[in-house]
């Protein structure tokens, strides 16, 4: 009975909630797993710290909130400061390389990506979160790339599928280029599978 807890954090406007939503949809609707998302609600504000959580499991998720995430995705330094201590001692850190400068810990595999720059190179900063989803998928292998791709395609505004899929592929490619082929680090599949509970 696996249970993987994921927290995604960034600032309002980065598409934190959409990223969590796509991951959840990909895992549950297209990937045959259970995925339960909750998000922190507060007065609406652009630019403020924002966070969403996903629990991905092979069985029904009974406890709806995360306790300590197995995976922490950070897209802003504020988010990193707020949530870094929460990450499990052997949890995986995924971060926006240009915006977050983490203090790396030995037992916490960490993977950085300049997702904003990549998004900019594709023409729209707004797809930064989709680049991050691709990268997350490649790092964790928690669900098939195909399921994630379907999740992206089905969840983005009609007419923007092409750009978003490009962003998704760019995230995957970045992992393959930087971590996959060079084999400096292996995909963190084992850790991402989480502990039995």
């Amino acid at each position: 009975m696996s249970r993987t807890e994921v927290r995604i954090t960034g600032f309002g406007g980065q598409g934190v909630v959409l990223a969590a939503y796509i991951i959840g949809r990909a895992c549950s609707v297209f990937g045959g797993k259970h995925a339960t998302m909750t998000q922190s609600f507060g007065p609406e504000a652009r630019g403020a710290a924002c966070s969403a959580t996903q629990i991905i499991s092979d069985t029904e998720v009974l406890y709806p909130y995360i306790v300590r995430p197995d995976i922490l995705i950070v897209m802003s330094s504020d988010g990193y400061d707020t949530y870094r201590d929460e990450l499990k001692d052997d949890g995986i850190l995924i971060y926006e390389k240009d915006l977050v400068h983490p203090i790396l810990k030995k037992r916490q595999p960490s993977f950085g990506i300049p997702s904003t720059r990549i998004a900019e190179s594709l023409g729209r900063t707004i797809v930064q979160n989709i680049v991050m989803i691709g990268f997350f998928g490649a790092v964790t292998q928690i669900v098939s790339r195909e399921a994630l791709r379907k999740g992206v395609e089905a969840s983005v505004p009609p007419g923007t599928e092409e750009l978003n899929l490009k962003a998704f592929e760019a995230g995957l490619a970045y992992f393959d280029d930087e971590y996959g082929k060079k084999k400096t680090k292996k995909p963190a599949k084992a850790a991402a599978a989480g502990k039995s509970d």
Partner: peptide, 9 residues
Amino acid sequence: ECVGHMSEK
């Protein structure tokens, strides 16, 4: 609120 704001399949 928990069920209302929780997303699942």
